[in-house]
Amino acid sequence: MSRHSGTEVLRYTAFSADPEGGNPAGVVLDASGLDEAAMLAVAAELGYSESAFLTRQGGPGEAGARDGTGGPGEAGARDGTGEAGAQDGTGAREYTIRYFSPKAEVPFCGHATVATALALAERDGPGDLVFRTPAGTVPVTVTREGAELRATLTSVEPEVLDIAPADLAEALAALDWPAADLDPALPPRIAFAGARHLVLAAATRERLADLSYDFARLEALMHRLDLTTLQLVWRQAPDVFHVRDPFPVGGVVEDPATGAAAAAFGAYLRDRSLVPGTAVLTLHQGEDMGRPGTLTVELRADDARVRVSGTGTRIGD
């Protein structure tokens, strides 16, 4: 545990059992004394792509469940210390959570959700959690597999949208990717499962590996289209993908492992009938950054939501 701007912050990496892999996140288990500006200051000082903040119902930093599902006692610690969340009637511990990049609040962050769930599980034990996020309600289950903990989040209802030809051309220009380098079997789309991501599929692993883009130009386009990241992918096998996620709107060049984008990508694949209705997919991310991680995406034919799971570990101070 460390202190940033006077706040106790845990540091975890998500989607890797190795502290040098996956995507690091800051986790504040009791942010009840922080307002929005203070949360942003902590995230900026920490410098990770995102940090997560748990708040008790009615506290100064309380975001509320902006999807209209909030209510008294829905989140936070009963004793005000973050020791345990309120119950939702099913035995799940329930919290409100907010996510901040170094530059702004984001509606949903998968890797920080996983990191927070693992931190709670290490403190309180595995089990079911409910996170009230700005994007909606996200259930999370933490299980123990041998010596490791694994967190599985269930996304909000996803959506897949077309992208205008002019916007696609601008994205490719900012990336310096010729249109001929795209995989025609995976057409560009905007996918949402808590946050919006532009899915672009490279025809070769070499194209995916060669990422050097115009930061300001891509950031401007992403702000205009309300995109959180670009989900750049290469299909190695029917159920195995390599992915990269530029994240200039968050103030970082690239996100090492992106659970929100993984959920959106799963929805995209199902929407385009590129995988069976029930499927388990493996996404490798971070290899080109030297921070390899693995994300597991599960699709169920009887549930439109997408499940994303992974391991994680505490990062030493």
Rank of each mutant, 00 (worst) to 15 (best):
L186E: 11
D124M: 11
R305L: 09
T113L: 05
C109D: 06
V9D: 10
A44N: 13
D124F: 10
R291D: 02
D226S: 04
E74N: 13
R307V: 01
A267W: 01
F53L: 05
T278E: 12
R150V: 15
L218A: 07
L168I: 03
G277V: 03
G68N: 08
P165K: 12
F192R: 13
A169S: 14
A104M: 05
L281W: 06
S49H: 06
A220L: 13
T116S: 11
A264V: 09
F241S: 05
D288T: 12
V306T: 09
V199L: 14
A41E: 13
R314T: 09
V252D: 02
D88W: 13
F192I: 11
L168S: 12
A104I: 04
A179H: 08
G58A: 10
V243P: 00
G82D: 00
R78K: 08
T204E: 10
G286Q: 03
V27D: 00
P134I: 10
E298Y: 06
V42T: 06
L40N: 02
G33S: 09
G312L: 10
A304R: 14
I315N: 11
S212E: 15
G266M: 13
S32T: 02
F131M: 10
L295D: 04
G110M: 03
T137G: 01
V114Q: 04
D124S: 13
D302Y: 03
T7M: 08
L232E: 02
E105S: 05
L182T: 03
M289P: 05
Q231G: 04
L175R: 15
R270W: 10
G312D: 07
T296D: 03
A257W: 08
S5C: 11
E50P: 09
L208T: 10
R291G: 08
G293Q: 09
G58M: 11
D245T: 07
L232M: 12
E148A: 14
W177Q: 02
R307N: 09
R300T: 08
A279C: 01
D303H: 13
I315E: 11
H223F: 09
A301N: 06
R207G: 06
D288I: 08
V160D: 07
D288A: 15
S5G: 07
G22N: 13
A220T: 15
E287Q: 14
V199M: 12
T152C: 13
A37M: 00
A257C: 11
N23Q: 04
P60D: 12
G250I: 02
L129Y: 14
R272K: 14
L129A: 12
G136V: 04
A179P: 02
Y99T: 09
L281Y: 05
E157W: 02
P72D: 14
G47Q: 01
T278S: 15
T69A: 14
Q285R: 11
V9R: 03
E287I: 11
E148I: 03
S212L: 13
S16T: 07
T137S: 10
S16E: 05
R98D: 01
L161A: 14
L120W: 12
G110W: 01
L172G: 03
G82T: 01
T313L: 15
E94I: 02
V28R: 08
A25T: 07
A173N: 08
A147R: 14
E254L: 07
V9W: 00
